[in-house]
Amino acid sequence: MAEYILNTNIGEVPVIKPRRLDGYYGTIFVSYDRNIAFKVFKKGDSAFDRLARLYTFRSEVAAYTKITADNLLGRHVPKFYGTLEVSNVVSSIEVLPDFNDTVAYCMEFIDAPFFGVVNDSKAEATILNFKAVGVDYVKDADFAIVNGVYKFIDFALIGVREELQKGEWYLLSDESKLQKLLAAFPFLAEIPKHYYVSENSYDY
């Protein structure tokens, strides 16, 4: 595991990059001493891709905000600590090119194996309750079981990529697709509030 520094709007955050925690939209970095995971979103190659990733970030943040505000559903997700702006991610030997001028969110690190929701009928039944508060995109969610409680990650209010790939939008320009997306889901234009507080009320 490699050691890195997240250079953020609140200062330097030392983290570890575990193996096998690199996804399509972002990479998980972990602060083991504070038991916090940072999902840092990859910037993307084109203007269209960058906006699609930014809107995915906002959709996931909005979903965590809704779930954690519900006393019953909140116990089924990691504790959520807010968002960060990330200027870059560096180590002693490299600057990671995918993470310049991007965004991240912070949550409790769960040191347990995760599984796809589709592999467990109880997990499927539990996460369907998320839709009651408007968290509709759950098909890619994973779960871990912690002290008998199902804990979910990788869910969102909407699936941004799926919306942009809708058949009726196929012939539209990228700009028109983004305009239609924002018209249908105006919350994607909202900038999430930046805050980061650990469970021990420790602020960077």
Results as ranks from 00 to 15, higher is better:
46 S>H: 03
154 D>P: 04
36 I>G: 01
33 D>V: 09
149 V>Q: 13
63 A>C: 08
60 E>T: 06
160 V>M: 07
149 V>D: 11
115 F>L: 08
110 I>P: 10
197 V>P: 01
130 F>D: 06
86 V>N: 04
49 D>R: 02
110 I>F: 03
78 P>W: 08
179 Q>Y: 03
54 L>E: 03
104 A>W: 02
154 D>C: 10
98 D>P: 01
116 G>S: 10
139 K>V: 15
109 F>P: 07
176 S>E: 15
17 K>A: 09
150 Y>P: 10
7 N>H: 13
115 F>A: 08
185 F>I: 06
127 I>H: 05
165 Q>A: 10
113 P>V: 08
16 I>F: 13
171 L>C: 12
134 G>D: 14
2 A>Y: 05
161 R>S: 15
27 T>D: 05
79 K>N: 13
69 A>Q: 15
16 I>E: 15
70 D>N: 15
199 E>N: 11
9 N>C: 13
64 Y>M: 12
28 I>Q: 06
71 N>E: 13
64 Y>N: 12
152 F>K: 07
184 A>Y: 00
71 N>K: 15
5 I>C: 01
50 R>C: 10
158 I>G: 11
160 V>P: 03
44 G>N: 01
120 D>K: 01
50 R>T: 09
147 N>G: 07
108 E>C: 13
83 T>Q: 02
65 T>G: 09
149 V>E: 13
96 L>P: 05
124 E>Y: 00
166 K>M: 14
126 T>Q: 09
155 F>E: 04
54 L>G: 04
44 G>M: 01
151 K>E: 01
73 L>S: 09
31 S>W: 05
139 K>E: 12
105 Y>D: 05
181 L>S: 06
171 L>K: 15
69 A>W: 02
10 I>C: 15
141 A>G: 09
193 K>V: 10
45 D>P: 00
78 P>T: 10
176 S>K: 15
138 V>W: 03
35 N>E: 14
68 T>V: 12
160 V>T: 03
94 E>H: 01
14 P>W: 03
197 V>A: 01
47 A>M: 04
64 Y>P: 09
81 Y>P: 07
117 V>E: 07
75 R>P: 00
4 Y>K: 07
9 N>L: 00
187 F>P: 13
175 E>S: 14
76 H>F: 00
7 N>A: 10
183 A>L: 12
67 I>P: 00
51 L>F: 07
16 I>A: 12
29 F>P: 01
18 P>L: 11
153 I>N: 05
34 R>V: 00
114 F>E: 03
49 D>T: 12
167 G>K: 11
80 F>S: 13
119 N>I: 01
137 Y>G: 03
93 I>N: 14
155 F>H: 04
